[in-house]
Simulated scan of single mutants.
Amino acid sequence: MQNDTQPLNDTLVSKSLSAADYVPTLDAMLARTLERIDLKKQQGLRTPDELWIVDHNDVYTLGQAGKEEHILQRTDTPIIKTDRGGQVTWHGHGQLVIYWLFDLDSLKWSVRNLVSHAEQAIEDVINDCLRSSPSNSDNISAHARRDAPGVYLYADTAATDDSTATDDSSLDNKIMLGKMASLGFKIKHGFSYHGIAINLNCDLSSFNAINPCGYAGMQMLRLSDFVAMQTDSEQTELEAQTEQQMSDSFSYETVTQKLIDNIAKRHAGLIELRAIAPK
């Protein structure tokens, strides 16, 4: 497991973990959160918040109130009970996982703010990729839902100038295609951990063994089926591509960086929450 830490600003750092097993990652995340809680309580210190960018080895995780009935088939992939919210999901290579180790009280964020910032950051990045892709017909967009946490792709029933709007009120004339991103957090003494998972170019067949996030029949989607994404072998040929070819496709790394940048701006107060439609 490789570990690379980078400062994003005075109060936020990112930490990258590749080929990470779930249990030691969770143990380290919890230990760091407890350490930060203790430093704040005992010494009044505000430690920098952290984004953990994780490439997990294959694993199914079951949330704190998760029901095992949502595991439809036992495979060789480990099933780990964990302390986040939500039901069962899968993590593995080709999926981008970002854990948000944030001091919510210092940010003056409520738990609802945290969830909305996470969902809207994902919406921003996925929609930016969709709009930038020549293969997209401009009638597919990413949206959060008030009744089910996460980010989903929708297709317009009729193309309109409003097709890139991202509030729930714009969903009346759209058909849901499926779910691309999941989220589940844990809050302890005002500090968050766990976070978000976005399917970029992973093998979606692993979701067939579960009811993803507790929803039977939920269609899981990946970004690479909607925009051109480079494979590992193609990335080695990147220098030989023209500027236009590079702009027409995305890599796992470029999408990751877009999301980190968006989250960092939200953390610094440079991107405000959009209004959320009532349920």
Rank of each mutant, 00 (worst) to 15 (best):
Q2A: 10
N3Q: 13
L8A: 08
L12G: 05
S14W: 05
S14Q: 02
A19C: 10
M29I: 02
M29Q: 11
L30R: 11
A31Y: 08
E35P: 00
D38P: 00
K40L: 00
R46D: 12
L51F: 08
V54H: 00
N57C: 12
N57P: 03
Y60K: 01
G63P: 02
G66Q: 05
I71Y: 04
L72H: 10
D83I: 05
V88I: 15
W90P: 02
H93C: 11
G94K: 03
Q95P: 02
I98C: 02
L101E: 06
L101T: 03
L101M: 13
F102G: 03
F102E: 02
D103R: 00
D105H: 06
S106P: 02
L107K: 08
S116W: 14
A118L: 10
E123I: 13
S132Q: 12
S132G: 14
S135R: 12
S135I: 14
A144M: 11
A144I: 04
A148P: 05
V151T: 09
L153V: 01
L153F: 03
A155T: 13
T157F: 03
T157V: 09
A159F: 10
D161P: 10
T166G: 07
D168K: 09
D168E: 15
S169T: 13
K179R: 15
A181S: 09
G184W: 04
F191A: 04
S192E: 05
S192H: 07
S192T: 02
Y193V: 01
G195H: 03
L200S: 01
L204M: 08
S205C: 06
S206N: 11
N208E: 13
I210Y: 03
Y215I: 15
Y215L: 15
Q219R: 15
S224G: 06
Q230G: 13
S233Q: 15
T236H: 15
E237K: 14
S247K: 15
D248P: 02
S249F: 00
K258Y: 02
I271C: 03
P278Y: 02
K279C: 12
